[in-house]
Design a binder for these strands. Structure first.
Lengths: 345, 345
DNA sequence: CTGAAAGCGCTTACAG
DNA sequence: CTGAAAGCGCTTACAG
């Protein structure tokens, strides 16, 4: 006796090329050619095959196609540090849009800032023989560097282009992003020019990895003195900024400038100050990073560094596609950043 | 003459099972067994094979494995409406975490609220023979409904469980989410109990699809009268809320209550009111939806409906996994919601 | 324009 | 515990 659908986990093999070839009265090769859009068949056979395929509800099997062909898959493996932060989700959105629009399939993994997790994930992703890899530009363990170098498909590093700026060769990886150190430096200079006194910084870390450390280093240089740092062991959020500002200011009441990991945290810090009656920027100047949407609705506009996040994703995809097509492509693409002189600093 | 790496796009075939079998002096079958972790081999051969595999840097080919086996792939196809909204990105995060932790690979696609785009994407994803499908619960075209029903793998609908609540059979799709109509209704009731007068609603639409329409309908019922609606043709954002509040209030100065598509928009609206000196909630009461992080740092806490977004993703993944394992699973999983009685309404 | 043969790298189902 | 045979659903490279 036979049941209706059964979800036993065993593969339900659908209509195959062979079946439609049989039904259409042609060879598998001919059917393959028309279904795949290659050339070498008459209009008549084309119509015949397409009609049958349509009638039978044929869904091509990319797995078999990938195995049978030299061409490589349409899978692009993307390893992200996190999905939760607005900063990254928009980069991914730009990437995904462009990639799927030209027929690639993104496989994504969230690997945090954990070398071991990244290593594991890359290996399991590689088992699907992706045609390209997208990772975040950052310092990584030598095992991971070796893995990425040994890979035969193009890899692009997004977001961060600071690392190894000079020893960049003309080959892989492709880099698309901005110089975070320079962004931090510029903000430091700007604030140093307007305020005297001590600066503070509120950021976060995950598993001993301090996020945005390049910006912090740049800021320190630019401002001209080491800021008092509070690195929370937490995810970036409005609340983390609020809490961090409270802690840092109560420990260092004389701070004149507060720089944050990102805009959301900066807004949290701003809210704290406003609620405590601290004058912004009269008593404390506040700056963020990212140019996130929230900054635009505040009564005192946030001073920040604006980054075109969608563009980073889009450009990363475009450069990858060029590389896959064998077209010339910039090995390093700097999308830059823009200092927004708001009213909080 | 031979070059170093070449990225010509042609597949660089790596070490194969056959090679490691040869090198280890066993048959391909035996090598396959140990590499795949099946049983039926001695410790000695196991060590021998593993050593060779390790030395040669063997990366198994899941594509070939999938084709050769009945077992179905480890690919899970996930179609999302958007990545940009915090509301969804956290659902995805929960899903992704759980799925990859047990060895599944998420393939994601952003299909907006566009039936045609969803249809296209599902078809191309299906060509990779995923072992499951994850989509957003919503009203869809009959073509898409038919496609989803004809599929032989489990499908789960996330986020929204309103549609077709009653005609739910014991089979697919699995549903995980909340009743948005009920959430809107509860908020409407709550506000109607505290404020007299006319309500307004600010939301957005994409391609003629009004987002959160179930909540709006519920709110209308609960409040007891149709709100004045402003549906912007834009993405949800702080600024859209700011702008929407400005427009709606200037056209309807007598509005007593303002309900928003989500918290970010509500905060934008709140900012507008505060900047105009409108007393909250004395003159206008404001409510959002989502329980997003931003609500927690405001000096006047936002009145909203809190939703456990990570949990939706996690539960969706867990139920899917149970189904794939043939274990019993709730066909409908309601994570509920919680009315947060803040200070803005 | 069309097709018969061989192969992609694995696994299943048998047989020892 | 181990292996030789056949097959998964396509495609490549030839030959007509």
């Amino acid at each position: 006796m036979s049941m209706g659908k059964s979800n036993t986990g065993s593969k339900a093999r659908g209509v195959s090329l062979a079946e439609i070839a049989l039904e259409a009265g042609v060879s598998r090769m001919t059917a393959s050619r028309v279904l795949r859009g290659a050339d070498g068949y008459s209009e008549a056979t084309k119509d015949k095959v397409l009609a049958v395929a349509n009638r039978l509800g044929y869904v091509p099997n990319r797995i078999a196609a990938a195995l049978g062909s030299d061409a490589g898959t349409s899978l692009v493996a993307i390893a992200l540090p996190t999905l939760g932060r607005e900063l990254y989700s928009q980069v991914l959105e730009g990437l995904e849009n462009k990639l799927t629009s030209v027929g690639y399939q993104p496989i994504i993994g969230v690997v945090g800032y954990d070398d071991e997790a990244e290593f594991q994930w890359l290996n399991s992703a590689l088992a699907w023989r992706p045609c390209a890899l997208v990772v975040t530009g950052r310092e990584r363990s030598s095992a991971n560097r070796t893995l990425l170098q040994s890979v035969t498909v193009p890899v692009v590093e997004m977001w961060n282009i600071d690392q190894g700026y000079d020893q960049q060769t003309t080959s892989d990886p492709l880099r698309v992003g901005l110089n975070h150190r320079a962004a931090g430096y510029e903000m430091g200079r700007y604030l140093a020019g307007r305020y005297r006194g001590q600066a503070g910084y509120v950021g976060t870390k995950i598993n001993d990895t301090t996020l945005g450390s390049d910006r912090l280093a740049g800021f320190s240089d630019g401002f001209g003195s080491e800021p008092r740092c509070l690195i929370l062991n937490d995810r970036s959020s409005f609340y983390a900024g609020y809490y961090g500002a409270e802690q840092l200011l109560s420990a260092n009441p004389s701070l004149r400038v507060l720089y944050f990991l990102d805009d959301n945290m900066a807004v949290g810090g701003l809210m704290f100050c406003l609620q405590k009656g601290i004058k912004i920027p009269g008593e404390v100047a506040i700056a963020g990073f990212g140019g996130l949407d929230v900054g635009s609705v505040l009564s005192t506009k946030l001073t920040t560094t604006k980054v075109r996040r969608l563009k980073i994703g889009k450009l990363a995809a475009e450069n990858l596609i060029k590389r896959l097509n064998g077209e010339p492509v910039a090995v390093m693409d700097d999308v830059g950043f823009e200092l927004i002189k708001g009213e909080t600093a």
